[in-house]
Lab assay of single mutants.
Amino acid sequence: CHSECLGNCSQPDDPTKCVACRNFYLDGRCVETCPPPYYHFQDWRCVNFSFCQDLHHKCKNSRRQGCHQYVIHNNKCIPECPSGYTMNSSNLLCTPCLGPCPKVCHLLEGEKTIDSVTSAQELRGCTVINGSLIINIRGGNNLAAELEANLGLIEEISGYLKIRRSYALVSLSFFRKLRLIRGETLEIGNYSFYALDNQNLRQLWDWSKHNLTITQGKLFFHYNPKLCLSEIHKMEEVSGTKGRQERNDIALKTNGDQASCENELLKFSYIRTSFDKILLRWEPYWPPDFRDLLGFMLFYKEAPYQNVTEFDGQDACGSNSWTVVDIDPPLRSNDPKSQNHPGWLMRGLKPWTQYAIFVKTLVTFSDERRTYGAKSDIIYVQTDATNPSVPLDPISVSNSSSQIILKWKPPSDPNGNITHYLVFWERQAEDSELFELDYCLKGLKLPSRTWSPPFESEDSQKHNQSEYEDSAGECCSCPKTDSQILKELEESSFRKTFEDYLHNVVFVPRKT
Rank of each mutant, 00 (worst) to 15 (best):
residue 103 K to L: 09
residue 104 V to C: 03
residue 107 L to I: 05
residue 108 L to H: 14
residue 108 L to G: 12
residue 109 E to P: 13
residue 113 T to E: 10
residue 114 I to Y: 04
residue 115 D to Y: 03
residue 116 S to C: 15
residue 119 S to L: 12
residue 119 S to H: 15
residue 124 R to F: 03
residue 125 G to A: 14
residue 129 I to S: 01
residue 130 N to G: 04
residue 131 G to E: 01
residue 131 G to T: 02
residue 132 S to M: 01
residue 133 L to N: 00
residue 133 L to K: 00
residue 134 I to M: 06
residue 134 I to A: 08
residue 136 N to F: 08
residue 139 G to E: 09
residue 140 G to E: 05
residue 141 N to R: 06
residue 141 N to K: 13
residue 142 N to S: 10
residue 144 A to P: 09
residue 144 A to H: 12
residue 145 A to S: 12
residue 146 E to T: 04
residue 149 A to T: 13
residue 149 A to M: 10
residue 150 N to G: 04
residue 150 N to S: 11
residue 151 L to Q: 00
residue 151 L to H: 01
residue 155 E to K: 08
residue 156 E to S: 05
residue 161 L to Q: 00
residue 161 L to G: 00
residue 162 K to Q: 15
residue 162 K to I: 05
residue 162 K to T: 05
residue 163 I to F: 08
residue 164 R to C: 06
residue 165 R to S: 15
residue 169 L to A: 09
residue 170 V to K: 05
residue 174 F to V: 09
residue 175 F to M: 04
residue 177 K to D: 15
residue 178 L to P: 00
residue 180 L to N: 03
residue 181 I to N: 00
residue 189 G to R: 04
residue 191 Y to W: 04
residue 192 S to Y: 00
residue 192 S to M: 02
residue 192 S to A: 03
residue 193 F to A: 02
residue 196 L to S: 10
residue 200 N to G: 03
residue 200 N to M: 09
residue 201 L to Y: 00
residue 201 L to D: 00
residue 201 L to K: 00
residue 203 Q to F: 04
residue 205 W to P: 01
residue 207 W to F: 12
residue 207 W to A: 04
residue 208 S to Q: 12
residue 209 K to E: 05
residue 213 T to V: 14
residue 214 I to G: 01
residue 215 T to K: 04
residue 215 T to N: 15
residue 216 Q to P: 00
residue 218 K to C: 15
residue 219 L to V: 06
residue 221 F to Y: 09
residue 224 N to T: 04
residue 227 L to E: 00
residue 228 C to A: 03
residue 230 S to K: 15
residue 231 E to M: 09
residue 235 M to V: 04
residue 237 E to I: 12
residue 238 V to T: 06
residue 239 S to W: 03
residue 239 S to G: 13
residue 240 G to R: 12
residue 241 T to D: 13
residue 247 R to H: 14
residue 248 N to Y: 12
residue 249 D to H: 02
residue 251 A to K: 11
residue 251 A to P: 13
residue 252 L to K: 09
residue 254 T to E: 07
residue 254 T to W: 07
residue 257 D to E: 04
residue 261 C to P: 02
residue 261 C to T: 03
residue 261 C to G: 02
residue 264 E to Q: 09
residue 264 E to H: 11
residue 268 F to H: 00
residue 270 Y to T: 07
residue 271 I to A: 04
residue 280 L to M: 13
residue 282 W to S: 00
residue 286 W to T: 10
residue 287 P to H: 09
residue 288 P to I: 12
residue 288 P to Q: 09
residue 289 D to T: 04
residue 289 D to G: 05
residue 292 D to L: 11
residue 292 D to M: 07
residue 294 L to W: 09
residue 294 L to C: 07
residue 298 L to Y: 00
residue 299 F to V: 06
residue 299 F to H: 06
residue 299 F to A: 13
residue 301 K to F: 03
residue 301 K to V: 05
residue 301 K to D: 05
residue 304 P to N: 14
residue 306 Q to R: 12
residue 307 N to R: 01
residue 310 E to S: 11
residue 313 G to D: 02
residue 316 A to P: 13
residue 317 C to Y: 07
residue 320 N to R: 14
residue 321 S to R: 13
residue 322 W to T: 02
residue 324 V to W: 13
residue 329 P to A: 07
residue 330 P to E: 11
residue 331 L to M: 13
residue 333 S to I: 05
residue 337 K to R: 05
residue 337 K to P: 11
residue 339 Q to D: 15
residue 341 H to A: 10
residue 344 W to F: 05
residue 346 M to W: 01
residue 347 R to T: 10
residue 348 G to T: 13
residue 350 K to M: 10
residue 351 P to S: 09
residue 352 W to G: 00
residue 352 W to I: 15
residue 352 W to Y: 02
residue 353 T to N: 03
residue 354 Q to E: 08
residue 354 Q to R: 11
residue 356 A to E: 01
residue 358 F to Y: 10
residue 362 L to A: 05
residue 369 R to P: 05
residue 372 Y to P: 10
residue 378 I to K: 02
residue 381 V to M: 08
residue 387 N to M: 09
residue 393 D to V: 12
residue 395 I to L: 09
residue 399 N to M: 15
residue 401 S to Q: 05
residue 401 S to N: 15
residue 403 Q to I: 03
residue 407 K to F: 02
residue 409 K to F: 12
